[in-house]
Structure formats: C-alpha cells, structure tokens
Amino acid sequence: MLRAVIYSERCKGCGLCIAACPKKIIAINKSEFNQMGYNPSMLTDPGKCIACGRCVIACPDTAIEIKEAGDA
C-alpha cells in the first residue's frame, strides 16, 4: 500500500503540503519540535492517503516521499 511518508526531521513546517493535499489529511504537529526547531507536518489519517504525490511536489524541502507503507 503506497502512501505519503513525511520525514519530520527535514520538515520546516511551512504548510504548503497541507494546502496541496486533496484529502485534507495533513496538519502541523503542534506537539512535536524537530532538531531545527520547527513543528513538522504529519498525516492525520494515513489510511485515507491516495498517494497522489501532490504534497511531494509542493514540498520545498524534499521532506515527503511516496512509499510502501511501513517503509518509513
């Protein structure tokens, strides 16, 4: 099963993936800070991901990939 995987350590929390997601299942994870000090994005409902890749295209930090679920 393919889905988006967010590498939170690379994420700067810009939110462009949120705007790009047609399923509205990406949000900023306010409870987590990464090494760079940003609140990274996260998938709120991974099961709904259709692996369309729009978040990958929108991300300026190559922090998202489409992979087989469980690879991350």
């Binding site: 700067k12 929390g13 810009c14 939110g15 462009l16 940003y38 295209i57 929108a58 991300c59 300026p60 930090d61 190559t62």
Partner: peptide, 9 residues
C-alpha cells in the same frame, strides 16, 4: 532556505 521558500521546489 526559509520555510516555504520556492528555491527548494
């Protein structure tokens, strides 16, 4: 680059 900067894209 800063968050959201187009350079990365």
């Amino acid at each position: 680059y800063c968050p959201g900067c187009s350079h990365g894209i």
